[in-house]
Write a protein that binds this DNA or RNA. Sequence first.
DNA 1: AGCAATCCATACCCAAAAGGTATGGGTATA
DNA 2: TATACCCATACCTTTTGGGTATGGATTGCT
Lengths: 302, 302
Amino acid sequence: MDLRHLKYFIAAAEELNIGRASQRLYISQPHLTRQIQQLEEELNIQLLLRTPKGVELTPAGKIFLDEARNIRSLMEQGIERTKRASQGKLGRLDIGILGTGILHAIPQILRHFRDTHPDVKVVLHTMSKADQIEALRQKRISIGFHRMPLLNVDIDNLLIINERLYLAVNEDHILSRQESVSFMELANYPIVLFPTEARPNFADRVIELCRNKGFVPEISQLVGDAFTGIALVVGGFGISVVPESTRTLNLPGLVYRPFHDCNSATVDFSCIYQKSEHSAILEAFLAAIHTFKQQHEAQVIV
Amino acid sequence: MDLRHLKYFIAAAEELNIGRASQRLYISQPHLTRQIQQLEEELNIQLLLRTPKGVELTPAGKIFLDEARNIRSLMEQGIERTKRASQGKLGRLDIGILGTGILHAIPQILRHFRDTHPDVKVVLHTMSKADQIEALRQKRISIGFHRMPLLNVDIDNLLIINERLYLAVNEDHILSRQESVSFMELANYPIVLFPTEARPNFADRVIELCRNKGFVPEISQLVGDAFTGIALVVGGFGISVVPESTRTLNLPGLVYRPFHDCNSATVDFSCIYQKSEHSAILEAFLAAIHTFKQQHEAQVIV
DNA sequence: AGCAATCCATACCCAAAAGGTATGGGTATA
DNA sequence: TATACCCATACCTTTTGGGTATGGATTGCT
């Protein structure tokens, strides 16, 4: 049995006249007769009653007409859905995330993406950078976000934004009294840094900046993630250095201060994906990232 | 595009290897290659990525695999449903009913039928005998129930049961004091009869019986249906004659009494259907009627 | 490096089935 | 009775489903 048989039967059942149906189908009447005979033989069920005026449906024919229409529309829908999937408008995108990127860039990128691709299911997986790379290679995720590039031949790295660093400090701390602070002040107080894993990481970046300025920071605590670090700062266990996007976190007793003497006090936020993957969904998501980049750069200029 | 293409694609997508899939399908590998190429060309979408180890699914291919499986199972279900419809096990049966038949025979017949054909939707239409015949001809119903045969060349009449008649009388009435009464007593009291329409009808049958006994009954009221007649008896407006099945109606203040001197005091309950209709559902329903008849006759003998 | 094994794609052939024309048989209407 | 209408049958052509042989590309093994 063929989809053609279904199409022919639907036409005959709708016209209740094989000759008219054959005209509608642009085939000859005898051929339509034979095709419907074939269908009935194959099912071993009579679907049409032949009358002098035309044909009429048997009870089984009525049911089969329902089913045939159903299958036809499912077929059309299926093709439509496949086409949308091929354009990246339907499907699933698995994303690896880590740390403070979730606070600023990722939600905005996701919003852009969802506006243009509402039927793509986005699944976020929190995982370390090493896990992200492994997951990319195994295609468990299609794109990952992180702060420090880790070069790999098969992995592409795309810079999203370069964020200024801020001092995160308890409002009772002496440094909170200044509107902006000198980066050199970091030499004088114990610092809370993060994360512990996924080297090189954000903590390494801060230590590198200190070393460039000629001092070695005193690290009071090295904690697993930014949120834990912030909590320690709020609790008075030290000061911390955070990317600008962390300022979204407005905790009571916590203030953020810019550095007035260090233009290089920045950190990158990037995404990684497999060079060889050319899925339309990923392309669309990378386009959303570019949109975000352009909007962000425009804001900075303003 | 064809169902064959779907079958082939499903096999290739499941095996992730065109050669193995072709073996599973008992066709040659080159032919499967070409068929899948055709499918992709027709959709204008790449569904499979060719790798040295075999093939893998593109995102669109994953969606199309879902859709194809869906269509395939719907196809199988559709054929199955059509087969059941052709055996009269799926579909719809429209039945015309009238009067007191609904009290005894019809529910039991329906129960038998529903046991063996649970997926046939039964629709009851209350309509007069003349309407039933018209509806049968227009195929708005497939079978009708009534009490008095009305011969028509194109309509078959099947006797279901022959019921004894009972006197329906108010418990305060003098006739209620006897366990059984004489049919001749009907000559002495005003009688409520029914129905008014669909001649010849049950009222005509009662009048005919009286005439056979040599008297003309005094008809106090001729009402539209049995239920109205019974209500009048309860209200003390007269006595009535009813088929045995009406005894199912146990109203307070109402008693039924047999006739001890009139073996012919019976009425038929029959069904009518079109001679030319040979639908499997109707055949199955007629079979249920035969089952009911046999059970009923067995009960009468016991 | 080179050879064998695998896997998909291409070329070419045949047979089956899709689809066409001509025509016949049955039933209703003029 | 003739005619129109509708479906079925007979027979022919063309398309295409499906086969075999073979080539190009990559991986793994020696």
